[in-house]
């Protein structure tokens, strides 16, 4: 674990794995809630957690890297369930990568419990981890200019759901009617870092 300087008011704590990033993020949120850490933004990502809006990043850096964070607490809440029609345009390509049938892609994907590692790309877009390494697939060589909202997709170690129509380069395996992002709702984001997620097949796979 090491802390990297980021300008005058931020620092980036780098760890060795996605699991450690999740544990660190949970610990930093706990400290902020307890009042022992003041930061405007605590933003997890693949191997890092950013603290932005901190008073003395140099002093904080020494403090934060003094001890490994405790393991992330076991989630007690039930996972968010997202109903999915596994009929995406890249289903056959993903099936070929995995060496299974299209129907088995749905069974495998729906059989995994995922966790939101971090958000980015668009409001409410979560990068979900949980895929075993032999299920990683590359991005599409040519991104699509328009991916429909609710598209369930795969890229690298992640699965995710497009919260709104946008360009995108991930492999599309299905669609959900779940609303991932709605600013009229509280909270606006269905998925936040740490949220557990299960996909449930609906309709003909």
């Amino acid at each position: 674990m090491r802390a990297l300087p980021v300008g005058a008011h931020a620092l980036l704590v780098e760890v060795a794995s996605a699991g450690q990033a999740r544990a660190l993020h949970a610990e930093l949120l706990r400290r902020r809630a307890a009042g022992s850490l003041s930061a405007r933004e605590i933003v997890p990502a693949a191997r890092t957690v950013l603290l932005d809006g901190v008073d003395d990043p140099v002093r904080r850096a020494a403090e934060l890297t003094a001890a490994e964070p405790p393991p992330a607490p076991e989630a007690t809440s039930v996972p968010v369930e997202l109903p999915v029609r596994y009929d995406g345009p890249d289903l056959a390509e993903v099936a070929a990568h995995w060496g299974v049938s299209a129907r088995e892609v749905a069974e495998i994907h729906a059989g995994i419990e995922f966790t939101v590692a971090f958000c980015g790309f668009a409001p409410g877009f979560g990068y979900l981890t949980g895929l075993p390494e032999h299920r990683y697939v590359p991005r599409r060589a040519t991104p699509r200019t328009a991916v429909p909202a609710g598209s369930v997709a795969l890229a690298g170690p992640y699965t995710g759901v497009y919260p709104r129509a946008s360009p995108g380069g991930w492999q599309l395996i299905g669609r959900t009617d779940a609303v991932l992002w709605d600013t009229a709702r509280e909270p606006a984001a269905l998925l936040a870092p740490g949220t557990r997620v299960r996909f449930t097949p609906v309709g003909a796979a």
């Binding site: 980021v6 300008g7 008011h9 933003v43 990502a45 191997r47």
Partner: peptide, 10 residues
């Protein structure tokens, strides 16, 4: 580089 959070002025 694995995705990481960005700050204003980066």
């Amino acid at each position: 580089l694995p995705s990481e959070a960005m700050v204003l002025g980066a």
